[in-house]
Design a protein around this nucleic acid. Structure first.
Lengths: 303, 303
DNA sequence: GGATATAGTTGATTTTGTCAACCATATGAG
DNA sequence: CTCATATGGTTGACAAAATCAACTATATCC
């Protein structure tokens, strides 16, 4: 199934192994071997670490580590001190000399990398960094950090339209006319946008919109929920629930009697969410608007 | 200067070294060492490779390689054959047994990776792949591959609006009203879009729009150029020139008398491009439309 | 208090990688 | 043609890196 992707990942692994090898080669004339450098790094990062931590962090045999540390001690780079709390453990510290040597090595590594990448434009530097952060986050199973902000910013109208166009095409096979309709609707919304009575919530991940919800006034007592959307990769993280809670709280705070929304019968996941927050189906009508037979449905929530 | 970024990249290197180590560890019980596996891989990829190629690809000492190959030969996994064209060279081939063994290893590596990543959602798989491709492209200094297609697709209207909103904010400090204006304009364009007389050109990089240009009919003999935009990271690659050439060719082909466009005096780079393609300033009027004093300018090109 | 586990050390050994010398063939200048 | 030099690869001698199992000392848990 993922066959092509697996092959791509393995290709990247080979490529990056080569790149890392390029960096490592240089260490040779630094007086430290590769594992020595990594061990020094771990010691400098957490002064007082114990050997078993390093074993885990660097993935090295404990016997081997013991000997490398022995070497460091004889070169007067580190000190080993038996733990007072647990007599089996040894805490490891850099001596002043060790710190100096490590700093030298560390600076040299920085320079080497800087040299290697100095021809890249700032745009590519930051792209590189973003890609790396992305990979780290994915492989270490960090749940993506998503912030929710209110208030429209330049780019939001367009990106929201883009999300609708792309995802409704993908998931419901709507065509371009739907996207044009969204663009039109958002342009109109913008013109009657009243920050006091209306509110938008934007979910952002690394500067990119991944979710959206909007509540706008319709007369003085009621309001309409519109443009609810979540990027597929960010579903199932509770964002929809969080957005909905914010919306209900806002509607209450602003004193609306009730909130309504229009959707189509196809939006099953969204509808389940609406229902869970107390919305009930109040009206239904057929539609052929976006190139297929649909039932448009109205849901109402009385506050 | 890039100090923080350098540190981030080094952090990624440590992280990824660990990840690769995880993958490599497994090889231990495959009967092949890590360099052996890489060498086998290179042989299988290019049957008949010569030793020196492998030295370059894998970054291994030639003496060491010679011995590893010797080992393969004695295990009947590969054949060495002296080149007929150059008696110094040896071409290396997998035997049937070698191919079988390699396939086994290769499949096992695939499975191992698949196993390691099986809990990731499809969205994260493809994100991972994209990040990896991005890093490879940047580090190997590949000029970004940009394709130009014609024809609107779902997502285009929104993304184009987004580009305008974001970039005009960034570069000219236009506000949201400009973006709403673009959204409106594009929705209208879509409704009167006539594939026979109008054309859009979309520059794409890795599935994302990075440039756009449109020509639409205005009456039967003249046409208007609109929505010309290029993502900053993709300027200076000759894309603007290419788009403009496509537009002029299309306008000629469709028999238009002349092409015109409206812009503002601030768009200096774009204006230079227009002039280079024969456009001349024909009209100018003040405007305060998007929150600042501007001179709107009309340029015409007679064909 | 005795079985079991953890933290680290040590000795023996294997695997992996490096270096320089070397052979055979090819290439290019005169 | 031929001699100096370069290229592709092999070999021997070593050094470095890594592994494994046995061992000591301390801690923990019933």
């Amino acid at each position: 199934m993922h066959h092509k992707t697996i092959a791509d990942i393995r290709a990247f692994n080979r490529f990056y192994t080569g790149f890392l090898g390029l960096l490592d080669r240089y260490l040779l004339d630094s007086g430290f071997s590769l594992p020595e450098a990594r061990i020094l790094f771990e010691i400098s990062r957490g002064e007082g670490v114990q050997a078993s931590d390093i074993v885990d962090l660097v993935g090295i045999d404990k016997g081997y580590l013991s000997r490398i540390l022995e070497g460091f001690v004889s070169r007067k780079l580190v000190l080993r001190r038996r733990s007072e709390a647990d007599g089996r453990k040894m805490h490891i510290f850099l001596t002043d000399k060790g710190r100096r040597e490590f700093d030298k090595l560390d600076r040299a590594s920085d320079n080497q990398l800087r040299e290697l990448l100095k021809d890249l434009s700032p745009g590519r530097w930051s792209a590189l960094k973003e890609h790396m952060e992305g990979i780290t986050a994915i492989l270490s199973r960090k749940p993506p950090e998503v912030g929710i902000r209110t208030g429209l910013q330049p780019g939001d109208i367009g990106y929201l339209t883009y999300l609708h166009g792309r995802l409704y095409k993908l998931e419901c096979d709507y065509g371009l006319s739907f996207e044009a309709y969204v663009a039109q609707g958002l342009a109109e919304f913008y013109h009657q946008y009243d920050p006091d009575r209306d509110r938008v919530w934007v979910c952002e991940h690394q500067g990119r919109m991944v979710g959206f919800l909007l509540l706008m006034h319709r007369g003085s007592r009621s309001a309409q929920l519109r443009y609810f959307i979540l990027e597929p990769a960010f579903r199932g993280l509770g964002l929809g629930k969080k957005l909905m809670a914010l919306l209900v709280a806002f509607a209450r705070e602003k004193g609306y009697d009730h909130v309504y929304l229009w959707t189509t019968h196809e939006q099953e996941t969204a509808i389940a969410l609406y229902k869970r927050h107390g919305f009930v189906l109040t009206e239904e009508k057929p539609s052929t608007g976006f190139g297929k037979a649909l039932r448009e449905q109205r849901f109402d929530l009385v506050l």
